[in-house]
Amino acid sequence: MEVNHLTLHEYDEFKTYIANLPETGPPVYFFFTGQKKENGRSWCIYCQMAEPVVKAYLNELKKEITFVFVDVGNPETWRNKACPFRTDSRTRLMVIPTIIVWNGVQRLEGSQCAKRELLNMLFEDED
């Protein structure tokens, strides 16, 4: 049992990836964050706070899942009301960071992503 990690950049990579997702297999989770700056950290302060908590949690998780880090772009791209991550009916993002269970209703948004107890509930719901 292990967590399979993947990183996607921008909406087109995300769209291509979900178009090719198999119907069966381990659950897929998407973690939407702001694009990384040259220092390797997101421009989004809430994403910076959530990422180490999420990564530490995933390192301890004993489940077979696919966990996909999705870069939603730079601040200008994200703040645009027409940003495809905001308008896509499958994601409907209002804030970053956001973690969603693909083809599920569960999601964590904003500061919720940095709370271990909420991560626990999100990943346990799949059992």
Rank of each mutant, 00 (worst) to 15 (best):
residue 88 D to H: 10
residue 68 V to Y: 09
residue 50 A to H: 04
residue 43 W to M: 05
residue 92 R to L: 13
residue 119 L to A: 03
residue 32 F to G: 03
residue 118 L to H: 03
residue 58 L to C: 08
residue 106 Q to K: 14
residue 107 R to Y: 13
residue 8 L to G: 09
residue 92 R to Y: 01
residue 30 F to W: 11
residue 80 N to I: 00
residue 98 T to M: 10
residue 67 F to I: 07
residue 51 E to N: 00
residue 88 D to R: 06
residue 69 F to Q: 07
residue 75 P to N: 12
residue 70 V to K: 07
residue 2 E to D: 11
residue 50 A to S: 15
residue 122 L to E: 08
residue 54 V to T: 08
residue 49 M to V: 03
residue 44 C to W: 05
residue 8 L to Q: 05
residue 53 V to I: 15
residue 105 V to M: 13
residue 83 C to W: 06
residue 77 T to R: 07
residue 32 F to E: 03
residue 97 P to T: 02
residue 11 Y to N: 03
residue 108 L to Q: 12
residue 94 M to K: 12
residue 17 Y to L: 07
residue 59 N to I: 00
residue 55 K to I: 04
residue 96 I to Y: 05
residue 19 A to R: 11
residue 44 C to M: 04
residue 43 W to S: 06
residue 44 C to K: 01
residue 35 Q to T: 13
residue 91 T to G: 13
residue 124 E to W: 02
residue 30 F to L: 12
residue 40 G to W: 08
residue 73 G to F: 07
residue 125 D to R: 08
residue 1 M to L: 11
residue 110 G to V: 02
residue 28 V to W: 04
residue 123 F to I: 01
residue 24 T to C: 04
residue 8 L to T: 05
residue 60 E to S: 15
residue 89 S to K: 13
residue 70 V to H: 06
residue 3 V to Q: 05
residue 69 F to S: 09
residue 79 R to A: 09
residue 31 F to K: 07
residue 84 P to T: 02
residue 40 G to L: 07
residue 90 R to D: 10
residue 74 N to D: 15
residue 84 P to E: 04
residue 80 N to P: 00
residue 38 E to I: 01
residue 91 T to P: 05
residue 45 I to C: 04
residue 123 F to G: 05
residue 78 W to Q: 08
residue 90 R to Q: 13
residue 2 E to M: 10
residue 84 P to A: 05
residue 38 E to D: 15
residue 33 T to Q: 15
residue 49 M to A: 14
residue 23 E to P: 00
residue 84 P to K: 03
residue 84 P to H: 04
residue 79 R to N: 14
residue 75 P to L: 12
residue 22 P to K: 13
residue 5 H to C: 01
residue 3 V to D: 08
residue 70 V to W: 08
